[in-house]
Amino acid sequence: MRADLKTRLYGGKGMAFLLLAPALTLFLLFQAWPCLDAFWVSLCSWTGFSPEARFVGAENYVNLAHDERFLRSVWNTVVFVFLGGVGHFLFAFLFAFALSHPRFKGKKFFQTMIFFPAFISVAGVGILWACLYESKEGLLNQLLNAVGFDSVTWLDTKNTLALGAIVIASVWAGVGSQMIVLLAGIKRIPPTYYEAARIDGASEWQTFRMITLPLLKDVIYVALALWLVGGLQVFGLVQALAGPTIPLEFETVSTYQYAISFNARDNIYMMGRGTAMALVLAGIIVMVVGGLRLFFGKREVEY
């Protein structure tokens, strides 16, 4: 009997559950339960302070569909992710490709320089770029003036591409990280492939298009997925660069969510709508990353 119990406990599924129990408990407690609870909150009207909340059904979601600022924030977020994605990957590829070239001198130096902004906190990057963009004393305008151009009001909300100013700061801060990921991928590709291509007379561009790019598929997928998840949640940079009061033209889903969920300064506490926003954002992220996965198909690359 005792031996039987032992076998059941340690030999079968019992042991598996036992070993999984600590991790599963933590997962249920700190991941699954908050997610379910967040969904419940999104169906309620709640200040975030009261122990009780009033159930309002799908009203928060319906209100979001009619909230012009929310729709604008979704649009701004999409524009940020698209422009930022183009900027990040264009430069990251350029730098990674250049730095991986056998004849490139000073690799370590340039690699460190390009990666350096990644060491700066997001708030620091925002404040730094706010100074650079400053209308009169900003470095960018001083440079423009020095070569005979008029100053540009970079953060003027009248500019159609005012959001572009934030994208530029984001690219500057993040390109180094993307470059490192791509560089690691490039270094993984066996050099014999390149030697064979050179013997066959392939140009640099052909080598990049026919060898580097296809063999980097899995790395590109990971880098893109990370960018999409981070980009769609962009908060700190916008808050630091365009805040403290964020105009409509710079508002992203996360900054808006933060502003209405517990905005003591504006006396607004709409935790229900804020949580609905967070869940909509999470849904968008899941769909986009899922779509990306479908687009890339089988991710493993075999050499």
């Binding site: 706010a130 209308s135 004393e137 100053s151 540009v152 009248k158 500019n159 403290p244």
Partner: peptide
Amino acid sequence: MHGWEGSKWPA
């Protein structure tokens, strides 16, 4: 003042 439209507090 000049450039106020793009100026960020506390400039």
